[in-house]
Simulated assay, not measured.
Amino acid sequence: MRMAFAIALALLTSPISAETLVERGAYLVGSVMVCNNCHTPRGPQGLDMTRMLSGGQTFDEPAFKVTASNITPDKETGIGSWSDAELKHFLVSGIRPNGSAVAPIMPTIFYTVLTARDLDALTAYLRSVPSVHRETPAPEYRVALKPEMPSYAGKQATEGELSDKLARGRYLITIAHCLECHTPEGPSVVHDFAGASGKGGRTFKGPWGSSVSPNITSDPVAGLGQWSDDEIKRAITQGIARDGRKLKPPMAYAGYATMTAQDLDAIVAFVRTLPPKS
């Protein structure tokens, strides 16, 4: 009896059981998936958190022109009229409740790995944020979009798998869609995931000017092969390169700075396994 009581008490007070779904969702949105980076408006001083997740950055690409949508619970301009099942389906498929598909700049293909609990957590958190009534421009699709399958995506993960450090790191860099930015474009303006995952080389323009995503593979010259763990963590969380250079956005350094030590360790461990590309 005493042993059963002790086990029950330990479960009730464990870090996992103490974290609510809303808290887990807030961590995923703010620290790992950094949804604010696209879905929150930017002002002269940066992200306007008074209108958090109410629609933000516009992406004007050869294939489409789209603005990150309002994902607050507003029923008219946000996702307030969506059911939980519709929201979860959208996150892993990119298909809205009305049957239309979102542009692939929304990394739903990477979210196919989200565990069932994390899908529940994201849904719970997005229901909890302040509702903001804010229209975003309708999307413009200029050419037919070809489906892609990134490295490490496509199969839902389980909570049990995340107890392994490397599996956890793979999961985290996938839902953080790191390889979306750190993989160059190939033929037909799609990513070359098969041949160049993590090689970098994509150019991003914004208020910061122009920045090029670096090589994050284990290559000892072009990549991170000679970097220490602490140097990699500093680059992720502070935007400072190994040589002291200040790195530019759109990398969401402030969001990643709030990740747990366990998750940062797992990410660094897995990044070390990326095959070298130069």
Score class of each variant (00 low, 15 high):
52 M>F: 15
171 Y>P: 06
246 K>M: 07
159 E>F: 08
172 L>N: 08
264 L>N: 05
150 P>K: 05
48 D>Y: 01
135 E>R: 09
257 A>C: 00
161 E>M: 15
141 Y>L: 13
187 P>C: 04
265 D>K: 10
47 L>C: 01
163 S>I: 09
135 E>Y: 01
273 T>D: 04
191 H>N: 03
63 A>K: 14
174 T>K: 10
250 P>F: 11
187 P>V: 06
90 F>C: 04
213 S>Y: 01
50 T>G: 08
55 G>C: 02
7 I>Y: 08
271 V>N: 08
268 V>D: 02
52 M>R: 14
237 T>F: 06
72 T>C: 06
49 M>K: 14
224 L>E: 08
111 Y>L: 14
33 M>H: 00
136 T>N: 12
260 T>M: 05
251 M>P: 00
133 H>A: 14
212 V>A: 07
203 T>S: 12
191 H>T: 02
51 R>M: 06
247 L>R: 06
246 K>E: 05
65 K>S: 12
211 S>P: 08
118 D>T: 01
116 A>F: 01
260 T>V: 02
145 L>Y: 04
277 K>N: 02
189 V>Y: 14
7 I>W: 04
236 I>E: 09
120 D>A: 06
16 I>F: 13
81 S>T: 14
69 S>Y: 08
77 T>A: 00
207 P>T: 08
160 G>W: 05
168 R>E: 06
162 L>A: 04
152 Y>P: 01
33 M>R: 03
139 P>T: 11
51 R>Y: 04
189 V>S: 10
112 T>E: 03
34 V>F: 03
201 G>S: 06
94 G>N: 02
87 L>P: 03
156 Q>L: 09
256 Y>R: 10
110 F>T: 00
92 V>N: 00
126 L>M: 15
193 F>Y: 15
107 P>R: 09
93 S>L: 01
90 F>M: 12
158 T>F: 09
44 P>Q: 08
162 L>Y: 03
9 L>R: 12
187 P>K: 14
181 C>K: 10
127 R>P: 10
65 K>M: 05
277 K>M: 13
200 G>P: 01
225 G>P: 06
175 I>H: 05
217 T>G: 04
157 A>V: 02
214 P>K: 10
79 I>N: 08
96 R>E: 11
268 V>L: 10
147 P>D: 14
100 S>L: 12
215 N>D: 15
166 L>S: 05
75 K>A: 15
4 A>N: 11
113 V>T: 13
163 S>G: 10
5 F>V: 15
154 G>H: 06
273 T>F: 09
117 R>Q: 15
163 S>H: 12
153 A>R: 03
250 P>E: 13
230 D>N: 13
238 Q>I: 03
245 R>H: 12
166 L>I: 07
182 H>W: 11
252 A>R: 07
